[in-house]
Design a protein around this nucleic acid. Structure first.
Lengths: 185, 185
DNA sequence: TCTCCTTGGGCACACCGACACGCATCCTGC
DNA sequence: GCAGGATGCGTGTCGGTGTGCCCAAGGAGA
């Protein structure tokens, strides 16, 4: 039942060895497990019998595997995906923020506040020159001006804020397709 | 039953008018609808009775509202969230890509190929100097070197590639919290 | 080679629950 | 007061889910 695999970090891989797919520690999942995950990524509410037919298993076997995938932590949660454009959130903005200092105290202070910003959906602490990169969702450019004023400019220890607007989203995947291709079994 | 609201774009808003929450065209959703969405964002497989108890409705009323939310497109899909660290994907890289030219043909050629990159999860066409920004998931830095070599460097019309590694992810939300706070009713 | 044991799959069954319907009630706006 | 919309209750049917049991394949050991 899909044991271990929790801590088997990728083995050191020589550069020339890997063909095209990544990974390749022997993942404790076979093709049917990946098919289950791929299907659940699309239809989280699919029933056992429905999934069983698509994967090619009996409902019993599928139920066992699905439960194992949940218990082993491969499946974190089942969540509804909302259409944010229905809420008017059609504008994505990438914001680069540099702090006054990189002291531990400054980072903590900044992060404690940025998690409270209701329009921020992602925030990365980055290597390189820019300290943080945020992804902000807004209704339009005017709304982003408001967000900039009421949320971003109130963040502590900020030295510089630089915003770039996304004109279009070309790719938006929750899971990289590489995940569903990697298996030895 | 939650009609319309599909096309009611944000009304022009004077800068001083808005207090703290965004939006504020009269959204066709009341607090209970938002509570349903908030709950389904966490537990997509919750039953009608389970949701009804949390929201404070009967299962009948809840079923009607949930169906309306689906039919009106507020809920796009129900999907399983995978723990990507279980697959070894612990490294997030932001990649900025500038093309040789901004001609329509160059954009189309690039985009047609970037959607095929299995390690790319997001790709934005950006305003400003950088043409595209990608979010790439890798196992580690060595794995990103492979991705850079086998996926990114093969993209057409690329003039410059600049990569920044995310040291830590401070915020990761599927839905901005502002969504669940905006309503008039 | 034979046997034991483990692992995973499939079948059958029973139970509990979800879901959909009809109807009565309540509230609001006109 | 009336009409429309939304809620809540009750009921019946259907389907999903969980369990027990048996079977097949593969590996280990004697």
């Amino acid at each position: 039942m899909q044991i271990s695999a929790s801590l088997d970090l990728p083995a050191p891989v020589s550069v020339a060895e890997v063909p095209i797919h990544a990974g390749n520690e022997t993942l404790a999942l076979d093709r049917k497990d990946l098919a289950i995950l791929a299907e659940l990524t699309t239809n989280a509410r699919a029933s056992h019998t429905e999934l069983a037919n698509k994967v090619g298993l009996s409902s019993t076997a599928l139920a066992r595997r699905q439960k194992a995938l949940e218990d082993d932590g491969y499946i974190q949660a089942y969540q509804a995906a909302l259409d944010l454009t229905q809420f008017g959130l059609t504008t994505t903005v990438l914001v680069r923020i540099a702090l006054e200092s990189q002291s531990d105290e400054a980072l903590k202070a900044f992060e404690a506040e940025v998690v409270k910003c209701p329009s921020v959906v992602r925030c990365f602490l980055m290597s390189g020159t820019d300290d943080y990169i945020l992804i902000v969702l807004a209704r339009d450019i005017q709304d982003f001006e408001r967000i900039h004023r009421t949320e971003l400019s109130r963040l502590p220890r900020v030295a510089r804020v630089q915003s770039s607007f996304a004109l279009r989203e070309v790719v938006n995947r929750a899971v990289p397709t590489v995940v569903f291709g990697e298996t030895k079994r």
